[in-house]
Design a protein around this nucleic acid. Sequence first.
DNA 1: TAGCTGGGTCTGTTTTCCGAACGCAAGAGT
DNA 2: ACTCTTGCGTTCGGAAAACAGACCCAGCTA
Lengths: 152, 152
Amino acid sequence: MAHAKLADLQCPIALPAALLGERWTLLLLRQVFLGTRRFEDFQHSMDISRSVLTDRLAELVDEGILRRVAYKDVRTRYEYRLTDKGRDLYPVMMALRDWGSRWMAPEDGASFDLHHHDCGGDVRAKVECADCGAELTARDVRVTHRPAVRLR
Amino acid sequence: MAHAKLADLQCPIALPAALLGERWTLLLLRQVFLGTRRFEDFQHSMDISRSVLTDRLAELVDEGILRRVAYKDVRTRYEYRLTDKGRDLYPVMMALRDWGSRWMAPEDGASFDLHHHDCGGDVRAKVECADCGAELTARDVRVTHRPAVRLR
DNA sequence: TAGCTGGGTCTGTTTTCCGAACGCAAGAGT
DNA sequence: ACTCTTGCGTTCGGAAAACAGACCCAGCTA
């Protein structure tokens, strides 16, 4: 994983944060969500070094976020596709995109648009209350710590 | 920023991904959202090296995500607080948390609960259509590339 | 038979991260 | 008057990643 034990913290934010907070991992996932699947394509679209790419792909595979699927080119090769677990990262990517558009909009305006397939509407990430449905910000939320069940 | 030019890609996902995808940055933000504000507290709660912590804090400050606010202890010190831009990362953190709870739940059950301050309901991140309000997954979304306005 | 292709691996160099030690300024304790 | 403590850094040499680029392999195609 990394030099240190980023993820010793048993916490549902810290665990994914340690995984996704590795250099290239988020970028790699962005590519995946945009449809990239093959080694060569990742390498060109991101200009990442081959050895690191090999590493990151392997990591995502054994985290169960990507899976290798055989395909036949000239001989058998593998492509990398999202598992359910991986696909479920969609809200994270969308939240990232919303924030990026609002606060770090690329200077040259290059981007892509996302629309609801059915109605054509814009796509956005939001935080809401599962009960009353209200849209929430950090200020509307109360945090309660739930102590660990001692295991060791 | 990093060895390479992760963020050459002018893209509203790639830009934030390059920033947040640095070691410790996401963890640091998690702490901030949980209320940590001071150097010493970050250092202990995350077990990060002091030099890297200094770095990351400075980076977040000049990205405009955190700001230094003076306080008086024994002499004047600074704490690190979220700006509006920073606070607006809340959906990203919540999306991360949702995913973490679902797919990487800590073994010992340690965690924290989040509830809507007003009604006590659970908090969740979701992706929806801004027009029709439907909840969306990657499959419901169409991607359209919008080419760059040539600048150079 | 030589060359191309996709997907890696290997190697030596550059960056970054690390822990530990040090600096420093103003109280507080003695 | 002195040492101690606190909070927040900075500075070091060594360890771990990331880097670019060369190399490899197998089966096709020219």
